[in-house]
Write a protein that binds this DNA or RNA. Structure first.
Lengths: 207, 207
DNA sequence: GCTGATACTGTATATTTGTACAGTATCAAA
DNA sequence: TTTGATACTGTACAAATATACAGTATCAGC
């Protein structure tokens, strides 16, 4: 009953791809064109069949209202796009698109914060923050321009590279600390630029 | 030049909300209706202004082709929806929508895996896996039905609760190990159900 | 051999939708 | 004071679009 035919899978995949790539689902005409149907009804039939099988939804009489149904779609929250930078030379004056290495898209609720235009992500290199359970390869989401508190993990510009450190207030002075015994421990933060404060983290699969 | 007026912000927000909630951007008529405009042109004017300011895009003569522009949109990859379960009593026979506590939406590339219908997420309770740098409150993404390898982090059903453990092959037998010295170390896995293998992790902001 | 589901062609039509044109009024900047 | 941007009303129309109806052909299951 729920099994899709090969043709239906092709049609569904086409709709889904267009939805992801262009943000718009195709019209019946566009479906027909893509598959070389000379009749709209062919496309309409497939859409009807996919609806019947519960994998496609439709708002009657509305243009481009096809939607591929994910069982969890109803629970979906707004998704934010956060740029991933390799390293940030300056203090993020105006982070430009061409500087981004990629884009992390994640829903706001799971992130725990509301991203702003000053939110960005860095890929962690090395295990200098292993004491804070941040590993090599982790994607760290940071917020630029907020005041860091004592103990916050921050990104700082050291030797023209963005590096993660723990910010420490001690005896009225500000220090940056690595969280790995094998690394130099304390650096005076006076001359360093704090580029962002860590807000969240994404760890991809390893190996 | 780029600053939006209050009215323009309202219009943009309306379009964005509809896009997120219904998956469709509104038509000019729907915008006009929502704001009580008696004329389509009022809506059209706002859309034109927002386009001019670069925060909205449009494919001419296409129905519902409005799209709110994020600077990073071009980099966006397909986003997957992964159900979040509180705990999973049985071996996930058919995880039903009503059992889901929420939904984690994240792009496939950042996740490092291609989610399947057997992908799900658990919220970590306690710090029994701190040795693997998994903290209380972390969101762990797991895959059901794949064969775990030695050293993989897995979710197992213990006392009717899903608990994370490290799977250890030793002397031809399978054990589950907690990664915290204060917890009981080894449990024979023979009678336990492995519900999933950890693939990725999301850490939200703390405090 | 019959039946229902699938996979189409071809035509027609009502509705939805974007767009254009002609105005009015307000407000801030030059 | 003038100019341009903003914020609308009101009307009209062509294009885009969903949908309906009448068929044909194939194939699997009964």
């Amino acid at each position: 009953m729920n099994a899709l035919t090969r043709r239906q899978q092709q049609v569904l995949e086409f709709i889904q791809t267009r939805q992801q790539r262009e943000g718009l689902t195709p019209t019946l005409r566009e479906i027909a064109d893509h598959f070389g149907f000379r009749s709209l009804t062919a496309a309409a039939d497939h859409v009807r069949a996919l609806q019947k099988k519960g994998v496609l939804e439709n708002q009657p009489s509305r243009a481009r209202s096809l939607r591929v149904v994910s069982p969890w779609q109803g629970l979906r929250r707004p998704v934010a796009d956060i740029p991933i930078f390799g390293s940030i030379p300056a203090g993020i004056p105006e982070s430009r698109v061409q500087d981004a290495k990629g884009c992390l898209s994640i829903d706001v609720a799971s992130l725990g914060i509301k991203p702003t235009p000053r939110t960005f992500a860095l890929e962690v290199r090395g295990d200098s923050m292993i004491g804070r359970h941040i590993l090599d390869g982790d994607l760290v989401i940071l917020e630029h321009g907020v005041a860091p508190r004592n103990g916050d993990v921050v990104a700082a510009l050291i030797d023209n590279e963005s590096t993660l450190k723990t910010l420490v207030l001690e005896r009225g002075r500000v220090w940056l600390r690595s969280e790995n015994p094998r690394y130099p421990q304390l650096i005076p933060a006076s001359e360093l630029v704090v580029q962002g404060v860590m807000m969240a983290l994404v760890r991809r699969r390893k190996g």
